[in-house]
Design a protein around this nucleic acid. Structure first.
Lengths: 206, 206
DNA sequence: GTCTATACAAAGATAGAC
DNA sequence: GTCTATCTTTGTATAGAC
């Protein structure tokens, strides 16, 4: 394999592999969207953060809405991959699966200015292009489905104990995670998401 | 008392009393901020929605940040009044107090495009003027304090049953409410907030 | 693939008449 | 207190050279 980057200067490293411009744009845009929301950053902000000129962005993403959709798509894929891998492991302990599943969310929770991308975008839902709305909705549906499956299995195997329907508990869990991410930034408390998720799993285990 | 409104046309009624222009601006701006976020609406949108011209807004609120702060302030006062009234009732049943406290949130939850103003604004926290950030933070702190008091008293009186610290449960409850508001719009489900709050109170009552 | 230059609309805001 | 007219800056986006 030949590295595509041909310029001078330091290589762009993230997660240990080199990134081309499109990836750098996606990564930086995700950061901006997580911290400022879709309507809270401009192509100018993005270009400044990356260190290129504004029109260069249009070569990779012909409109801000296209970029927005791509950013959510990448986030969604990344998060879904975790869920898919856990679904693929036969007979994994439900408590462990839940812990592994929540780890990416806890990681975001520990990053001071960050929050779940889709939680943030859900807050500006009707002020967003429709293509982006559909991506956000799909993200939430996917994760509700995963949580419902995991909770149902976990209760059947006596790893979890709760009265309500698995779907209702899944809805509660996802609401809780998303809400904790929003709240923690406003009260400037990095421990909130971890603490809250801990309280939840404590409740679920009876 | 003499009504201040002097023009022709239908009187502006909300909650059964006439509103002057400043109130209409505040009310309409709150709606826009709840549905589109602070960076998702403009003075032009607001003027159009009210039916006046853009510069007229500046007579009442000299900047968008001023208006934003005023909108949160009004929302905060309104919500705090409920909490203060409940604090003032000697020996009120904690479960009833919690139900009454949550009713305004449930009402917002039933309104299709709406969400808690401060939850929405918490999502764009770092893309907001500092004066507004401070209001949002204060809102959350107030409500965490109220919930903590209520939960501690409720447990002492055996109306609630939970293991964790009252503060931790208050943080969980507020995260849950705010998250449910965000989520319900993105999955277009008006029942989510009510269902989720029901599940929570069920859990708290043991 | 990136740049300079530029078009065009919208945003926040002000001046000053009525 | 509201209006018309206007200013300035920013935002999204395109044209065309390198």
């Amino acid at each position: 394999m030949i590295f595509r980057s041909g310029g001078s200067g330091p290589p762009d490293l993230t997660d240990g592999h080199r990134m081309d411009t499109a990836d750098r744009i996606l990564t930086t845009a995700e950061e901006l969207m997580q911290t400022r929301g879709y309507n809270g950053f401009s192509y100018q902000d993005l270009a400044d953060a990356i260190g290129i000129r504004k029109p260069s962005l249009y070569h990779h993403f012909p409109s801000k809405a296209d970029l927005g959709r791509a950013v959510i798509g990448a986030y969604r894929d990344r998060m879904r991959r975790v869920a898919d891998q856990l679904d693929a492991v036969e007979g994994i302990d439900p408590v462990s699966a839940l812990t592994l599943y929540l780890e990416p969310m806890l990681e975001i929770g520990r990053r001071p200015g960050a929050a779940c991308l889709c939680g943030v975008l859900g807050s500006e839902f009707s002020a967003m292009p429709e293509e982006m709305q559909a991506e956000v909705t799909a993200f939430f549906e996917e994760h509700l489905d995963f949580l419902e499956r995991l909770l149902a299995r976990g209760r059947a195997e006596a790893a979890f104990r709760f009265e309500a329907e698995p779907r209702a508990v899944a809805r509660l869990a996802l609401s809780l995670i998303e809400g904790a991410m929003i709240l923690k930034r406003s009260i400037d408390d990095r421990t909130l998401v971890g603490e809250t998720v801990g309280t939840l799993t404590g409740l679920l285990r009876g």
